[in-house]
């Protein structure tokens, strides 16, 4: 159960935990504390890691906000999304003592170890991965600056980040509660960072789009920009396309609004999956012909341009048909 040692292979990737505590970080944002029923130490994790939680048939990924060092508990903060797929509502219904199955922590938004500085930019619930970044920065004496934009009275983890930023001379915090002051603060912050700063942004899609556009306008290189997709809006429904399964010659239609993963499920071709958000890399499918419309965050740019693989949970097709090696 604890961090896997080098003496036994890890069996499975799931942990069965119980809800030990919960509270509201802000209206609609419920924080859950998950522990092992026998109080075992849980696997350690890198800053920015998430777990995938299975709840009432939904699987959703949430950033871990606690300490990643020999954790006795995992903390997640979940924003209730009435218009979502229902995963957040299910998590909000969890009762104390109830058992939940979660994935082992997965790292997809880690700090850059040799960065001169980290500029962390959070919008609303996008604060969650930044909390563990700040913890690690404080611990190792790294420089980091957090820009946190939230609605008045709605700042989740505000006390946490205020305390962390006050604990170390290399950390600083700027808070914004309206769009105009955030835009001004962002523009100013983007232009005064030392060379070698890496930018991390998490929040609603429009918020991240704004930050990235502003950073590009300020001549930040792409390799210094890091996005965390969780907490972002759903991807658009996309155009319909079809896939030909190379091994059987079978053709499968993928309507607008249906993922390739789900379309394959419907015809009995089941791919492994975890996050369903193009992050974890479980559902990769080899492509034999056609150009995928890559919408994932897993494949590298080089891999995307090679058009030899597709993450079937989020990506679609630029061509009317893709041929898959399935």
């Amino acid at each position: 159960m604890s961090t896997p040692l080098l003496t036994a292979p890890q069996v499975g990737v799931h942990l069965d935990l119980v809800v030990a505590d919960s509270s509201y970080q802000a209206a609609g944002i419920r924080e859950l504390v998950l522990r092992h029923p026998g109080r075992a130490i849980l696997p350690s994790f890198a800053p920015g890691s998430h777990i995938v939680i299975e709840c009432e048939g939904h699987t959703n990924a949430y950033s871990l906000t606690g300490s990643g060092d020999f954790p006795e508990e995992y903390r997640i903060s979940v924003l209730y999304c009435p218009d979502g797929r229902g995963g957040s509502a299910a998590v909000h219904r969890l009762m104390h003592g109830e058992q939940v199955r979660v994935s082992a922590p997965r790292s997809a938004f880690p700090p850059v170890a040799n960065a001169r500085r980290h500029l962390l930019i959070a919008g609303g619930i996008g604060i969650t991965p930044m909390v563990s970044h700040l913890r690690a920065a404080a611990e190792w004496g790294r420089d980091a600056e957090l820009l946190y934009s939230y609605r008045p009275g709605q700042g989740a983890h505000l006390a946490d980040v205020q305390a962390l930023c006050g604990s170390s001379p290399g950390l600083s915090l700027s808070e914004f509660t309206n769009r105009r002051s955030f835009r001004a603060g962002l523009a100013e912050a983007l232009r005064r960072q030392p060379l070698g700063t890496h930018l991390y942004v998490c929040g609603p899609q429009a918020f991240m789009d704004t930050v990235i556009a502003e950073a590009r306008a300020a001549c930040w290189p792409e390799s210094r920009l890091h996005l965390e997709a969780f907490g972002s809006a759903e991807l658009d429904a996309g155009r319909p396309f079809s896939v030909r399964l190379g091994r059987s010659g079978r053709s499968v239609a993928v309507p607008s609004g249906v993922s390739l993963l789900d379309a394959l499920d419907r015809v009995g071709v089941t791919m492994p999956r975890l996050c369903r958000q193009g992050v974890c890399g479980e559902c990769v499918v080899p492509v034999k012909a056609g150009r995928p419309e890559h919408r994932d965050l897993f494949l590298s740019d080089a891999e995307k341009s090679a058009n030899s693989a597709i993450m079937c949970c989020v990506s679609r097709s630029l061509d009317p048909e893709l041929e898959l090696d399935l």
């Binding site: 040692l5 080098l6 003496t7 190792w140």
Partner: peptide, 23 residues
């Protein structure tokens, strides 16, 4: 040991010692 690898060095040490102790 490049300076930014200090956390990794501690990570490695703990995993190695814990593993030795268990083995």
């Amino acid at each position: 040991l490049l300076d930014h690898m200090r956390p990794a060095a501690w990570d490695a040490l703990v995993l190695l010692l814990e593993t030795l102790a268990q083995q």
